[in-house]
Design a protein around this nucleic acid. Structure first.
Length: 259
DNA sequence: ATGGTTGCCGAGCAA
């Protein structure tokens, strides 16, 4: 079961790039972030003939997540529990039924800048709610994958210029600690289970020639429950996508599970 | 230090 995460930065802007990548990469499941559309205006027709079931959790103009799957989906839920007043569409879950059943969470973690400030408080509060949900998901002792744009640079080696991110909400010690609190429940960063060392990025800013200078950061992650980690076969980052026409500022990150 | 870019939608905000 090939599972990918891809922040597309607007589904309408990716009308050509996203279907083209799906045809090449042939993922079984994709979680999308920043669809920037409502459920009603999501362009389902872009995926006609590709065989994907589509589940969205959108909002107008900002945020919005989705799950695309060519395997059957069950028990789809929308929204991160823990705050009924939160109107930002950043979390969706579904169970994918392959050889094994896998619970997939698609997430768009708040950016949090500027820090300190209300946006950073929202980020940290959201991460605490996510930790609670992650803890609850472990109780069943089943395969769980939490995939998405975490807006977290886990370590300095995950940035080409770590000093440039020192005061940023993506890399502040409190942000990294909140990310580790989730990992410490027993989750595995799938990419780091397979690949060591610096120079592996999933995002390059549109500004200041970041792609041309390879000034990137690794902020898109797939976290695996112990039962999912047992099934991990391979992982990768589709870096080349960033150099094509009208790319997102993020590229797809994927895993292959024996499931 | 600053500015640099893209997407939303049609003015700034978010990233």
């Amino acid at each position: 079961m090939k599972i990918a995460t891809y922040n597309i930065n607007g589904i309408k802007a990716r009308a050509e790039a996203l279907p083209a990548w799906l045809r090449e990469a042939e993922p079984d499941v994709v979680v999308l972030q920043e669809i920037k559309s409502t459920d009603e205006t999501f362009p389902h027709e872009l995926f006609d003939g590709l065989g994907y079931q589509i589940e969205t959790h959108g909002q107008k103009s900002f945020n919005g997540v989705a799950i695309l799957s060519r395997l059957p989906l069950e028990d789809v839920t929308r929204g991160l529990p823990g705050d009924n007043s939160d109107e930002q569409a950043r979390w969706i879950e579904a169970t994918v039924v392959g050889k094994r059943a896998v619970r997939i969470c698609g997430l768009y973690l708040p950016n949090g800048n500027p820090a300190p400030g209300p946006k950073y408080d929202y980020k940290l509060g959201w991460m605490e709610r996510m930790r609670t949900r992650a803890r609850d998901l472990l109780v069943a002792e089943e395969a769980v994958v939490m995939a998405g744009d975490y807006n977290i640079i886990p370590q300095d080696e995950d940035a080409a210029k770590p000093e440039a991110w020192r005061e940023d909400a993506l890399a502040l010690p409190e942000s990294r600690a909140a990310f580790r609190r989730i990992l410490n429940l027993g989750f595995t960063d799938a990419f780091r289970a397979e690949v060591q060392g610096p120079g592996h990025y999933s995002f390059w800013d549109y500004q200041a020639g970041a792609w041309q200078r390879n000034n990137g950061i690794r902020i898109d992650h797939l976290l695996l429950s112990p039962q999912a980690a047992d099934l991990l076969r391979e992982t990768g980052i589709d870096k080349d996508i960033r150099g094509r026409d009208k790319p997102s500022d993020h590229v797809p990150v994927w895993i292959d599970l024996d499931a």
